[in-house]
Design a protein around this nucleic acid. Sequence first.
DNA 1: TGCGATTATATCGTATGCGATCTATCTACC
DNA 2: GGTAGATAGATCGCATACGATATAATCGCA
Lengths: 141, 141
Amino acid sequence: MTLPLPDMICFALYSATHAMQHVYKPLLDDLGLTYPQYLVLTVLWAQDSQTVGALGRQVQLESNTLTPLLKRMEERGLVTRARDGRDERQVRITLTDAGEALKQRAAHIPACVLEKSGLAVDDLTRLRDQITTLRDHLRNA
Amino acid sequence: MTLPLPDMICFALYSATHAMQHVYKPLLDDLGLTYPQYLVLTVLWAQDSQTVGALGRQVQLESNTLTPLLKRMEERGLVTRARDGRDERQVRITLTDAGEALKQRAAHIPACVLEKSGLAVDDLTRLRDQITTLRDHLRNA
DNA sequence: TGCGATTATATCGTATGCGATCTATCTACC
DNA sequence: GGTAGATAGATCGCATACGATATAATCGCA
């Protein structure tokens, strides 16, 4: 049993993810952000000052990916990285004013992407929930 | 307007793609393949001896990604790379016996992934088509 | 027929992802 | 209170992705 590529759900996800990032690219270039950096900022905009581990659980990345990424964000002056006083093992990531300010400049992005998706909000929401369900099944399998 | 991460369709795709690759990982490790290498082989198993460009159009990757990937596959003895006699610009990728033989050893993978997805074939097919539709909208936007 | 434009790969630089391993810190339990 | 085990990040190595650019071969058209 060897499925052709267009029939494979994994390839649908794979290629759709790339197409999505391609849509985000020009929008994020304006802000000097990469896509995973934007995901991290999204988490911090909702709740500032989180540990590397807490960020990782939300964006689903580990320290091997996050540490260099966060260092680059620190170099760009978007966040600060500081060991937690109570538990020196933890590193707390906090938005700078510049990082906080990007929230406004990124506010138009969701509407842009929605429009380019060519789908109605309801359809997109339903699709998102199905994809999330699939993801959770795969994770627990 | 700043959506929380779990509400973002882009993140659903992003994290589901990673979860999917995580499921494939142990299956592909047995064959000594990476995920994109497996995608390329899938294309070649359906139709052998294709140019880099033709492969790229199907797996949605360009020569900057494919050339090094195909060189690694050549080093492992899975494919050969040879300039086309009629058009010396083109490089034709052809399965070796070892590359062809992997088709059998990979035959069980689709069923494994289907099982771990926790969904019925019909649901998965419907979901795949919706994701593909979204991808095509994004691409043409 | 010759030469600029086009096409097919290749190369380079940067940023992910991720398995494996290392280090520093903390916690439990004796 | 001291040490084994657990925990949080960091580091390393390798393989993608991809924009920008380079190079070689082919094509189109005056």
